[in-house]
Structure formats: C-alpha cells, structure tokens
Design a protein around this nucleic acid. Sequence first.
RNA 1: GCACCCGUAGCUCAGCUGGAUAGAGUACCUGACUACGAAUCAGGGGGUCAGAGGUUCGAAUCCUCUCGGGUGCACCA
Length: 578
Amino acid sequence: MNLFADIRALVIDCLTELTEAGVLPSGLAFDNIAVEPPRDASHGDMATNAAMVLAKPAGMKPRDIAQALADKLSGDARVATVEVAGPGFLNLSLDATVWAGMVKAALSNADFGKSTLGAGKKINVEYVSANPTGPLHVGHTRGAIFGDALASLLDYAGFDVTREYYINDGGGQVDVLARSVYLRYLEAHGQEVTFEDGTYPGDYLIDAGEALKAKVGDAYVGKDEDVWLADVRSFSTDAMMDLVRTDLASLGIKMDNFFSEKSLYGTGRIEEAINDLKSKDLIYWGSLKPPKGKLPDDWVAREQWLFKSTDFGDDEDRAVQKGDGTWTYFAPDIAYHFDKVSRGFDGLVDVFGADHTGYVKRMKAAVAALSNNTVTLDIKLAQIVRLFKNGEEFKMSKRAGTFITVQDLVDEVGKDVARFIMLMRKNDTPFDFDFDKVTEQSKDNPVFYVQYANARVHSVLRKAHEAGVDTSDLASADMTLAAHPAELTLAGKVAEWPRVVDVAARSNEPHRVALYLYDLASEVHALWNRGNDDTSLRFLQEDNVPASQAKIALIRSASVVISHGLGILGVTPAEEMR
RNA sequence: GCACCCGUAGCUCAGCUGGAUAGAGUACCUGACUACGAAUCAGGGGGUCAGAGGUUCGAAUCCUCUCGGGUGCACCA
C-alpha cells in the first residue's frame, strides 16, 4: 500500500534484470537507493537516485545507468513518463490510475496507511514516570503527550504496544511527601503547622490531609514518625497517583500498566537483576575516579559495587550500591528494565525529561547487558518548554506556588491544542510556548487549520446530501473525472500517508505526522479556493453527479487520512467548527 | 573540565536519515468573499544554514576543530 515502497521495489526489480542481462556488473548493493517525493513539483511524482548511487561501484557514468533504467521502468503500466535529469536523477510521473487507486484505497480500506513494519513485535513505551509527589505540571506534558502519540503511532505501524508508567515510590522523596501530608493532617485537626525541612507547602495536599483524617481519625496525632510513616507514605502516594491519573486522563492518556519501584525492594528482584550482571562479570568491587572539574566539598574516595557500563559505551562505570550498603537509584532502574526484558519485549522506548540526559548511556548499557544485546532501548528526550505569558518568560517555582498544572493548561487551551502544538515540534528541540497566542483560539493555531480542513470536507458531504448526490459508495467513483493537475496534487499528498507513517515509526518521531497533516490540510484548502476562480474545480458540480462523486471522493480521502492522523496524535477530528 | 542536545528568514520552527534553486507559520506589503464555510487562498520582499576545514558525483544533514546557548555530571530519585 506504500506507493513509494512499491515503486522502489520496481526499481530494484529493473536493476536486477539489468544485472542479469549483463548491463550492470553483478554484486551491486541496492541498499542506499531511495525513491522519494521530489521537492519540486516540476520534477514529476517521484524521484530516484539509483543511477548516482550505483555509478561508482559499477564503474559507469550515472547518466548511462539512468538511461538503461529509464528504458526498463517505462515498460511498467504504472509509470507514465521517465526523465533523466540533473546529474543522474530519474524523475517518474505516474499514471493517473495509480493516484485513483490510492484514493480508493483510502476510502475503502479502514487500514489505509497502517503498516506491517512492526509485524506484531512487542514494544514497551515508558513515559511520564513523574514522581508521585503532586499533580502533573506543564513541565511533564511534553513528555506525556509525546510518549502517548509515539505509542499510538507504533501501534498504527503494527507493533504490539504497552504504555507504561514507572512510579518512583521507592526513594526518599515519598517520605518527604508523607511528612508533608502528615502536616496537613495535623492542620485538619486544627493545629498550626510550618513546612520545614523541604516539606511541600502546596495547597494540593490539603485534601490529602483531610482524607487521611477521615480515614484514621486522630490515631496519628502526636505520635512518632515510626508509628505512622509507612502507612501515610502508601496512603499519600496512592492519593497522588489518583491525581496523576486524573491529569493524564484530561490529556487523553490512558496507561496500560503502572509499575511501582517499591515493588522491587525486599522482593529479591533487584538482587536478581544485579546477579544477572554479576554472572556476566559486569559487576565488580572498586572505586570511581573523582569527577573532573570542580570537586564536591564532601567528596571521599569509596569502594563500592560498580556496573561495568564502560563496556557498552558509557563514560564511567556506575555505582549500584551506596556506601551504607543500600542500593543507588540506578539499581532499581536496572531491575525495572530487567523486568521489561524478561516480559519479552522486542524493543523498549524510554521517554525522559531533558534533565535526565546524563542517564541515557548507562540505561542503554544496562539493557544491552541484561538482554545480551537482543533488545534495543531507544531513549527519547522531551526538551524544555519555555512558557511565555504577556510577552515575558514565565518561570515556574514549586516553592513560590507559581507552577502551572496540566489542569490549568487543559482548562485554558484544551487538550487538542495542547497536544497538537507540542507534537508539531521535534521532541529534542527546546521550544517556546506562548500562552497568550494559543489562548486566543484563533489564527495562530495550527490545530484549527487542520480541523477546519476536515470540517470543510464534511460540509461538502452535507451539501451533497442536500443536493441528492449519493455519497455512499465513493470508492466506486470514476476518478478520471477528477484528474485536473490541482486535483492530482491532492491525491498525491493522500498517497504519501503510508510512507509518512512508515518513516515516522522507524524514527520514533510522531511530529512527522503532525507536520504532514498540516501540509495535507493546506492542499485541501488550496484546492478548495481554486474552486472560487475555476468552477470546474468545485467539489459539487451542478447536474453532474458522476463528476461530483469523483471530486468528493478525492477530498473525502483526504479527510479520512486527517482523521487517522489526528487519531494517532490524540486530537479530536472535528466535523464542524461553529 | 567531561558528556549529551541545540544553533536554519526579524520571531517560532520544519527540512522526509546524503539529493536538484534550503521551506512553512508569524510579522510586513499587495490582491481574492453576490461563492461547496475567508478560522481560507494567491503573490511579494526577507538567508554567509553560527564559523573554518574535511569526506564525494552532491553536505543544513556525515567527520574534525572553533565560537555561542541549554542540560547533566560520586553518595540525591
């Protein structure tokens, strides 16, 4: 169904025939041959670099190869014309029936664009994984939205995807959370409290304090920490995870699995993972060199258990156990990824915040070691989003209480806008998010641009219905009645969809889908406006039902693709904009 | 000091993993609503792709170095 892949296969077939005929020397590698949409429309529908790639290894002039290939290619029914251009490009234009076939495929096949790339392979996408110490704030949204769209994309590309959230409930900060909730609990009992020792003063814990009171009454009032800490900790993390789940839901995110870090402790699972590495001779007792540059004041040389991550491309070996004998944070991370590997995933994706850049190498090293290089781990970094309000950068601070929550964001701009804007950009480029512009709900919103294109198509469908034009079987329309160059341009854009899915999924880059949808919408709008000047390009042709059906089939195929694409991005494909 | 990410139009960002004359949006200028929805379209100006070398038929893209910005750098999660 991917036209570009089909034509590439055709090119390879022709080259193989040329090799068999002795025109080309045998043993040439065809891997680097590409068939792509040309940048310039005057260069036809597709271009291939085959002749230039093969010229050197074949010891021939590129244009000679190009000519021989051109002669072969022109024998195929799908190929209308072939031109040798520039240094040896082959520019192909395809027969109009090819485009008609793609339009019909989009209309009649609900799986148009779905790929077999994944072949049912199991992929685990871990994202968000924010500490369960409060509601999600805007800093989390980019990774959350990115990870979710990536998961959908991979699913669309034929992978068996699991969406997963790693709950960091094993470390010291959940103790801080528990103490903070305890203070709110005392407050609920009428006591004056002050938030010291780094405890969280945010209002969002008031409810948790009240809830704790409702649950245990005054049982913990005036008691020592060892009496209540464990219980309050689990009570608090549960409460925070409820908030997180609500926040995720408001962004349209539903996880398949929540994995608790705490579940790794005291169950032998960390030991199991570390022993696996030990058995591979990758854990040793030693000491690390002091960090270069400015030395921390309290640095002391120390012997500890180290993971030989330098064997897998890391810069330093990494400690798995602290000086006091307890595990470092890295140890449960290893165990967690060991668990993922054990669950039989063929590939893992971790979506990290930009502040975790430093852990990429060691995590990859760990997965490579644990899986004997059989499982790939791709780590995508969600870069910083700088917020602008009233023309000035808006700095968030938990302490000053000036942080914008996911809930604030969704209330202001809505889920669809938040998602689309974030997904327009590549995940690893920092970008500026102007709150005011997006809040205007007007021009500066690419989301509306895409949705509007879809709405316009549905408007035509409604008009067609009023005019008595049967649109129930558009796939059978006679597409020769919609073969104006401007119309074929749109058909060509629709035909690119499967390729976009393929490329985006291969590189784990859902933003390509968003950008493509914008382009596709642009073509829809352009063709629409052409109808203002040239009535023969209007979708509803008076007293000509077959022509109307063909033209409607064309734009309907575009809207079908828009729906699929927005579905992947988690954005609602509105049918009306009123 | 080391590692990773980044540097493309005034601004915000793409650039299909090495392809042809580097593109959108925004802003500025000009034009198109008696109209299938103008939240739209058509056109114009705007660039040393941070800089310098290198690899080759061909570089914004790959390699090296320099400059500039971000993030992270024993024991914290």
